[in-house]
Amino acid sequence: MPTPPPTGPLVTRETLTAQLRALGVEPGEILLVHSSMRALGWVCGGAVAVVRGLLDAIGPDGTLVVPTQTGDLSDPAEWRRPPVPEEWWETIRVTMPAYDPLVTPSRGTGVIPETLRTWPGALRSAHPQTSFAALGPRAAEIVDGHAPDCRLGERSPLARLERLGARVLLLGAGYGTCTSFHLAEYRIPAPLVEIGRPGAAGWEVVTEVSIDSDRFDELGYDFERDRTVVRGKVGAADVRLFPVADAVAYAERWLAVHRPREE
């Protein structure tokens, strides 16, 4: 059967910028973007056009930040989608390449973050599993010093984004992707877990705060019911815009009530 034509809408760099500006994205601001390329519609120029449109919206004084996580740099014993045979585990641990911020591709965050990661001038944080990439005049201030034992807590780019007054843009992505909620997990009693991963000197195990995006969609529903969240459309995508600090503060209270944990 012939492939059906795209249904659109047609999205261009210029229309994306105009719609973001109409939503209230401001020149000079710091924007943490979680995105879905598929949700936008038919984009002329693909992810490159999206990144250019985002950069146009915030202007030369703005800074664009995206998650560039690498969850595959982890213990194969924990892999579920798909699992690998147990007899492979030790070989995988011994041979898995260590994280290199310049060459290790992101995984599971989409084509837009991966495009920004490789953009000329982009900087990337050092955490081997939960890095962020940033482009703009505040990029180094945001990504430098990401502690290797702090995935998404006080010594991660998230805490810096909070202090710098950054906003979150959910561009076709749901609240389940909202990394800002994870910062709240570091501020409530939470269990610690041991995490295996490749390191510069071979396989290593570090102790970290347990993080879990379970119920983040429910948390997001309550958040935008109770707090000011700008909502609109860019192309076909549902878009939400709100301060990182508001999301963290609300999540800290919500998680303490709805998902209590023991230390």
Rank of each mutant, 00 (worst) to 15 (best):
74 S>H: 05
255 L>R: 04
24 G>H: 05
68 T>N: 09
80 R>V: 14
239 V>M: 02
77 A>M: 02
168 V>I: 15
142 I>H: 10
260 P>F: 03
213 S>C: 05
55 L>I: 04
181 F>C: 10
212 D>F: 07
163 R>S: 14
73 L>V: 01
152 L>N: 15
96 M>E: 14
181 F>W: 10
169 L>S: 13
84 V>Y: 06
87 E>P: 10
17 T>M: 03
244 V>Q: 10
160 R>T: 15
263 E>G: 06
28 G>A: 02
259 R>G: 01
206 V>Q: 05
167 R>N: 15
236 A>T: 05
23 L>T: 02
172 G>H: 09
226 D>R: 13
229 V>E: 06
220 G>L: 06
93 R>T: 04
42 W>L: 05
135 L>Q: 07
165 G>I: 12
158 L>M: 12
158 L>Q: 07
103 V>N: 11
185 E>K: 13
127 H>M: 10
113 P>C: 02
223 F>V: 00
142 I>M: 04
93 R>C: 12
39 A>T: 09
164 L>K: 11
235 G>Q: 05
89 W>D: 09
209 V>M: 09
61 D>T: 05
249 A>C: 00
219 L>P: 03
141 E>K: 10
208 E>W: 08
52 R>V: 02
6 P>G: 01
260 P>S: 03
129 Q>V: 11
85 P>Y: 14
193 V>W: 08
252 E>F: 00
164 L>M: 15
180 S>A: 15
250 Y>I: 01
186 Y>H: 15
77 A>C: 01
37 M>W: 05
203 W>G: 12
111 V>I: 14
201 A>R: 14
115 T>D: 04
171 L>C: 13
149 D>H: 12
228 T>Y: 11
248 V>R: 00
240 R>D: 00
244 V>T: 03
135 L>M: 13
47 A>T: 12
186 Y>L: 13
6 P>M: 01
